[in-house]
């Protein structure tokens, strides 16, 4: 009887109640924003075929985060330096040795990640390893929110200004070069954006899962459309939606937030994989039969 009264008085109580907590409002906002930014970038990552690169960069920022905390710097600066550094190192080793690229990528990022783990155990600080590895959007601080806002603004601005050039670079780099566009600059621009987005993403889902933020929304959107601009919007929408749903689920059911966000993304991908109007598995089978 009591429950009934609550429900009739507040029909969306289950949805609004979490918003009465400061930490939840903050977590939802940051997660949605980071989701949107990573979702937008994920279009370029999936089209360029940089999933492994995304995995590498996101792991390689680990020592940067630790060092930055130890020195009292904003962790994003340390992470950015190590993210870009790892990419430069991958390029250098690949060029100077006969080892194949995917091997070099795997080698470099595990090396960086291992260094990060060792540093965490040696440098005495108040860093919570679990927070870096798995994210902690529910415990995000005010200064972290500010950093995330700045990073997101930067990434989105660059992606909007250079979206056509970056799209052309992903589609046909030869043509881009032949009309006088500096593809070297675009290459490093995209890698820098990747590092920055990884830094933003590790706030919400942590280092281990951030690569999902950087590829899953793009892959989902890719199954749903043949238009690049629409793909961007779909990726942003599915990614920020996953973040919001994931945070809610984590609150209601008391489950790990990062895992819950990525799980929602994966479920959305599976739905697209099955039911996408043109490229879904079920659709393809029907058209073969008919």
């Amino acid at each position: 009887m009591n429950e009934l009264i609550i429900f009739s008085a507040q029909p969306f109580g289950w949805l609004l109640e979490p918003l009465s907590h400061d930490f939840m409002r903050r977590a939802l906002m940051v997660s949605a924003l980071v989701g949107a930014v990573c979702g937008l970038l994920s279009c370029y990552m999936t089209l360029k075929g940089w999933a492994l690169m995304g995995d590498a960069v996101s792991h390689a920022v680990m020592p940067g985060v630790v060092v930055a905390y130890a020195l009292g710097l904003p962790f994003s600066i340390g992470a950015f330096v190590f993210g870009v550094g790892s990419v430069a190192l991958i390029g250098f080793v690949k060029q100077k040795s006969r080892v194949k690229e995917d091997t070099v990528i795997g080698l470099v990022f595990t090396g960086f990640f291992a260094l990060g783990l060792v540093l965490v155990s040696k440098i005495k600080s108040n860093i919570d390893l679990m927070h870096i590895l798995f994210g902690s959007p529910l415990g995000i601080s005010g200064s972290d929110v500010r950093q995330t806002l700045i990073i997101s603004g930067l990434v989105v601005t660059i992606l909007i200004v250079f979206r056509r050039d970056l799209m052309l670079y992903c589609f046909d780099a030869t043509h881009a070069r032949s009309i006088g566009i500096n593809t070297g600059v675009l290459h490093y621009m995209l890698l820098s954006l990747l590092s920055l987005a990884a830094v933003a993403g590790l706030q919400t889902v942590g280092i281990i899962l951030v690569v999902a933020m950087l590829i899953t929304p793009g892959a989902t959107a890719y199954l749903l459309t043949d238009r690049f601009d629409r793909m961007n919007l779909l990726a942003i929408a599915s990614s920020s939606m996953s973040s919001v749903i994931g945070v809610y689920l984590s609150y209601w059911w008391d489950i790990e937030t990062g895992g819950s966000i990525v799980l929602v993304q994966t479920i959305i991908f599976l739905l697209a994989f099955l039911f996408a109007p043109r490229y879904g598995v079920l659709k393809t089978q029907v058209s073969i039969n008919s």
Binding site: L47, M167, L168, C170, F171, D172, H175, Y222, T225, D226, R227, F228, R230, M231
Partner: peptide, 11 residues
């Protein structure tokens, strides 16, 4: 790649 014929020629 998700681009139309028009998009490609526009490049």
């Amino acid at each position: 790649f998700p681009v139309s014929v028009w998009d490609v020629v526009m490049m």
